[in-house]
Computed example of a mutant assay.
Amino acid sequence: METSAAASVTFYDFLDRMRNPASLDLVRSIKSFIVSFSFYAANPENDGKRVQEFFLTMEAAIREHPLWTGATDEEVDCAMEGLEKYVMTKLFSRTFASAPEDAKIDREILEKIALLQTFLKPEHLDIPAVLHNEASWLANPPQLHSNLKFIQLYRRQAKLVSEAAYYFTNLVSAKTFVVDLSAKSLSMDETQFEESMQAARLTNKATQIDASPTLQGQTDPGPPRRTNNKERDISGRSNYPYMDAEAGDLTVEDVERLLSLYKDVVTKYTNLSTAVRHLSTSKTEPSIPQSEGTSFLLTRSEGINANADHES
């Protein structure tokens, strides 16, 4: 499989060739294809077919193009890798988790794995003791369904073969197994399985309640703390009841509640920081460089649409 460094070289080589005025016809084809997606309602299956057909058309065009005269199959494949990354980066918001049910399935899988992690052990799956590795059971990837669907629909079909296809198929099978998993799938009594799942649901629910002091049914937090007008919501209650509190004002119950909130805040902050770093990295990807011959292929989708309107 291609390393990150090799992928970057492949991508930048593609961008560099697109800077060449001789690539004008290829750039026009890429621009036209990206803009064309705004003409159709989102439909994952149809979108996937259009992308795959475009990749096949572009591969044929690249093989016949003067810029790749005498190019080896490996060099053409590198160009296609660069093209795929560029196109799918531009179309990501349209193609990833685009169907309403995708978010629902992602959430259901995430929640089910979280429940199973509380009691499921390797022996329940008849995994030999020599292969037990508890650490590998800690992963619960978010948006698993959407990621697999994106790869299945938009990864060039020529790359989903051999070893890559083997690993991908295993991952899809694992997802399906989790979705359909019941007591019959395990070496576990059905009653025990249902009781374990129910206990896991109650534990998760209790954890959520402990981390949410504003939920109805929460014990009385005590007398209201000193607040200013900016800290009061429309109902007149303080949004931040401990902001003006002194150490001597706190009770034992307050300390327990604050500790629970602290842990929840740290967890959310860590997850948010990771997501922001990932988002910041994904937004810094370079676009096809502009030159005298290719300046009309703008780097922003808004620019592309605006230019398309101008040309029309």
Rank of each mutant, 00 (worst) to 15 (best):
M1L: 01
M1V: 07
A5P: 05
A6G: 13
M18W: 04
P21G: 01
D25H: 10
S29C: 08
K31H: 08
K31Y: 07
I34Y: 00
A41Q: 15
N43W: 03
P44D: 14
E45A: 12
N46R: 13
D47Q: 04
Q52W: 10
F54V: 10
L56P: 15
M58K: 14
E59T: 14
I62N: 14
L67H: 04
A71R: 00
A71H: 01
T72E: 15
L83F: 02
K90V: 04
S93T: 14
F96D: 06
A97E: 11
A99G: 00
K104L: 13
I109F: 09
L110T: 15
K112Y: 10
I113L: 07
F119E: 00
L125D: 00
L131P: 00
A135I: 08
L138Y: 03
P142A: 05
S146C: 11
S146E: 03
N147C: 07
N147V: 03
L148D: 03
K149V: 03
Q152C: 06
L153E: 04
Y154R: 09
R155V: 05
R156I: 13
E163I: 05
E163Q: 04
E163R: 03
L171I: 06
S173Q: 07
A174N: 05
A183V: 11
E190Y: 02
T191V: 12
Q192F: 09
F193L: 00
E194G: 06
S196A: 14
A199V: 01
A200N: 00
R201A: 13
K205S: 12
A206E: 03
D210H: 01
A211G: 06
S212V: 06
G217V: 04
T219G: 07
T219E: 11
D220W: 11
P221G: 09
P221N: 02
G222Q: 00
P224K: 06
P224F: 01
R225W: 14
R226F: 10
E231V: 04
E231Y: 10
E231W: 08
E231Q: 13
D233G: 04
S235C: 07
S238R: 04
Y240N: 10
A245N: 11
E246D: 12
A247N: 10
L250N: 03
V252R: 02
V255K: 11
R257E: 06
L258E: 08
V276H: 14
R277Y: 08
T281Q: 07
T284P: 02
P286M: 05
S287N: 15
I288Q: 07
G293D: 14
G293V: 12
F296W: 12
F296K: 15
T299K: 12
E302F: 05
G303H: 03
D309N: 13
S312L: 08
